[in-house]
């Protein structure tokens, strides 16, 4: 039942879809800040040089320019590394993109420790907190090629600002190419009855592997992929918890102010007192290293998720 390996990372899959779409839609433009060979936005730049603006290593000014380009309704895709787009450019995203509700779509690579090898300065481990806190922002976090391609169309077709969280390395394929996705939707790639592992991005893959480890010992874990973090599928979670009655939130991100905190607050608001725990960075910076080893060291690999799920089941 193991997942097939992905040939390309999500940062590449979304860009292939963008280039396809650009052939039919001449209206949108793409900005990059001298990282086009890494975001693969150069593919668009080579095909459509008139609609591609490489504004140099200048993320803040680039985001302000995106707001200007979008001021009359044009759709603008801004490509870069998550750390720089969500931190150096944060004020421009908040006050000049989100506040006026402009069609600026942020395609943000190197999510979490998928950029492990480069070290902390290149790991976007607080981006979901920043982006999901901003009013008017839609936040998507695909886990594979199909969901990344779909994220492009969701970003283009959803009015206003959209943040898409992408990964550095090719991981696994989870969904068939014809799978449909929607803003505010979720998928349940594994059904279960003992515990729900709510997750997004690369954690979907770790959660599926964890569910297989757990199955071997008779624990039936459900994997709930909340690929749309904002808005997110509250009804989907409610149904899942009706089945399982225990919740593990897994994110390649700080545990604070990301998926886990969002779901915990929802549980409180809705009187759902289920055993709950989180996997993610525990108020710490990560480090350089291999992706798999780094996940393991910081408790975000399949084995760690399985341990956490087992513990939740024992608390029921």
């Amino acid at each position: 039942m193991s997942l097939p390996p992905a040939k390309v990372p999500t940062r590449r899959a979304i860009m292939d879809r963008l280039v396809e779409a650009a052939k039919e839609d001449p209206s949108f433009v793409v900005l990059d800040s001298d990282i086009g060979y890494s975001t693969y936005s150069y593919l668009f730049g080579d095909a459509f040089p008139d609609r591609y603006f490489n504004l140099g290593i200048a993320e803040l000014g680039t985001m302000a320019a995106a707001a200007g380009l979008a001021a009359d309704g044009r759709t603008v895709f801004v490509c870069g590394y998550g750390v720089f787009l969500t931190m150096r450019a944060l004020e421009a995203v908040r006050s000049f993109v989100c506040y006026p509700h402009l069609n600026v779509k942020i395609l943000s690579s190197h999510a979490g420790v998928t950029a492990a090898i480069d070290g902390v300065t290149h790991q976007a481990t607080e981006d979901l907190a920043f982006m999901s806190t901003l009013p008017n922002m839609t936040v998507l976090a695909p886990c594979d090629s199909s969901s990344a391609r779909a994220a492009f169309d969701l970003a283009r077709n959803t009015p206003g600002p959209v943040y898409v969280r992408l990964m550095r390395d090719p991981l696994k394929e989870v969904y068939a190419p014809e799978t449909t996705f929607r803003v505010g939707g979720s998928h349940t790639p594994r059904r279960g009855k003992d515990v729900t592992i709510a997750c997004l991005g690369d954690m979907v893959i770790q959660a599926i592997e964890a569910s297989e480890l757990l199955a071997a010992e008779g624990i039936s874990a459900e994997v709930l992929d909340l690929y749309s973090l904002k808005p997110w599928d509250e009804a989907g979670l409610a149904e899942s918890l009706d089945r399982t009655g225990a919740l593990l939130a897994a994110e390649n991100h700080q545990r604070r102010n990301g998926l886990g905190y969002e779901l915990a607050a929802w549980c409180m608001r809705n009187g759902r007192s289920v055993p709950f725990s989180q996997a993610g960075l525990a108020d710490t910076f990560a480090e350089s290293g291999a992706y798999g080893k780094t996940l393991e060291k910081f408790g975000m690999d399949a084995a760690a998720l399985a341990r956490a799920a087992r513990e939740l089941v024992s608390r029921k």
Binding site: D118, V120, T121, H122, E287, S288, G289, K297
Partner: peptide, 13 residues
């Protein structure tokens, strides 16, 4: 360089 637990992080710390 760039390995887990190393003092030689991918970028200087």
């Amino acid at each position: 360089l760039r390995r887990n637990d190393s003092r030689l992080q991918g970028h200087p710390v």
